[in-house]
Structures are given as structure tokens and as C-alpha cells.
Computed example of a mutant assay.
Amino acid sequence: MRICVFLSAADLDERYTGPARDFAERLGKGGHTLVWGGSDVGLMKVLADGVQDSGGRLVGVSVGFLSDKARPDTDEMVVAADLAERKKLLLAKADAVVVMVGGTGTLDEATEILELKKHGHTAKPIVLLNTAGFYDGLKQQFRRMEDEGFLPLPLADLVHFSDEPAEALAYLDSAIHA
């Protein structure tokens, strides 16, 4: 499976890096490919190191103004002209999407893929990996959107929330092979 992961490039503490390493190791040992923003810093580096060290492949999609932070030892690296092109390429190269902890860039990427799925422009499974309860507030907001009629399809058809890396990967395996 080619799994696109949206996540932070910030240096974060162990409550976020530990689960990221766990997910990365499972991804790599499963023979999967990580499709990610291509950065060799922060949580992006933690994830890429774990996938590569565990035997997985790396497909990076950087963007011109961040290319100086791009990981040099990937199986494939593409440099997009801008953030919009980067998101298109990330999604085109993936079978599934996982949203890990992150800031505004991660949230932008997540909402774009969710909007595409809402409108039927992708059927790729999407998991929000809710590490250390990071997305509890967003989950509550999505439930409110569903309850008050803002979503044209059930929330469960749009996104799957997972608290643990193993469960996230198991969900993707079952969704892809269904």
C-alpha cells in the first residue's frame, strides 16, 4: 500500500514521536510505501527514518521553497512548484491517507482531502490518527457538523478516527482490500 501521511515537520516530544515511530515501523515492516512531504526535519524525519529502517519505501513530495529541507536518500523525490501542486501529487501517489499531528499546514491538507472525498472526487480511505487525544476537539467539531446537517454523508464514511498506530494500519488494510 502507498500511504500518504500528512504531519508536522516540527520537533516534538516523545508523546508524539513515539507513536510516529511505532506507525513508521509497522508501515515499513508491512512492505508499504510512505508518501509524505519529503522533509528531513522534525516529525517528518522521525517517520521517514522509521519506515526506511524497517524496510519500507519513501516517496517524497517537497515544494520549491522547502527543497533545502528535502530528504536526500528517498526512493523517489518530486519537487512541486507550489503547495497546491504538492497536495495534488501527494494524493495522486497514494492509495490511502493518514493525518497525524500537525499545525496549520497539516490541517489544510486534511481538510482538502476530506472535501474531495465529501464531493466524491476520491474514495481513498482517510484516517485521523488521534495521538495523545490531539484531535479530540476536531472530532467533536466533526460530530457537531454531522449532527447539525453540515455533512452530506455520514462522518464514518468520510474519515476514520484511530487512537493507535496498529489500529490505523489495520483499518487501512481492511478498507483497501474490501
Rank of each mutant, 00 (worst) to 15 (best):
L129P: 09
H32Y: 10
L107Q: 13
L151D: 08
V61Y: 04
G102Y: 05
A123S: 15
P165E: 01
I126V: 04
A48N: 06
A123M: 08
Y16W: 15
L153P: 09
V5Q: 00
V46N: 09
K88M: 07
D82S: 01
L172V: 15
Q52N: 05
D147L: 11
D75C: 11
L27T: 03
F142C: 13
E14F: 00
Q140S: 13
T106F: 08
G42Y: 09
P165T: 01
E76V: 12
A178T: 03
A96T: 01
K87R: 14
C4E: 11
E146Y: 10
Q52E: 13
T131V: 15
P125L: 03
E85F: 07
A132H: 05
R143H: 15
L153W: 03
I176K: 11
V79E: 12
E167K: 14
E76M: 10
T17N: 04
G64V: 09
L47E: 05
G38Y: 07
F23A: 01
H119M: 08
L128V: 15
L43P: 08
P19Q: 06
G31E: 06
L27K: 04
E164W: 06
R144E: 11
K118H: 13
G149Q: 06
K139I: 00
S39E: 02
A81H: 11
E14A: 00
D95T: 02
V78K: 11
D173Y: 00
A123H: 10
P152R: 09
F134W: 13
L169D: 01
A123C: 05
V61A: 02
N130H: 07
L153I: 15
E14I: 01
E115R: 08
F161P: 14
P19H: 12
L128T: 08
L114F: 02
D95H: 13
D53N: 15
K69G: 00
L128F: 14
A132I: 03
G149I: 01
D157L: 10
I113T: 14
P165D: 02
A24G: 10
L91A: 12
A168F: 06
Y171L: 08
E112V: 15
R15W: 04
E109R: 06
L158Q: 05
L107E: 11
Y135I: 07
E14G: 00
E85M: 14
G60V: 03
L34A: 12
P152E: 10
T33H: 05
R2I: 01
F134C: 05
G38W: 04
A9G: 03
L138G: 09
E146A: 11
G103V: 07
V41M: 10
R21I: 00
L12D: 06
F65N: 10
M44H: 12
K69A: 01
E109T: 00
M100L: 13
V46R: 14
R144I: 13
K69L: 15
A80T: 01
A94M: 02
Q52Y: 04
G50W: 07
P154V: 10
K29P: 03
Q141N: 12
S39V: 01
P19F: 11
A166F: 02
S39D: 00
A81Y: 06
V35A: 07
G37Y: 06
G120W: 03
P125S: 04
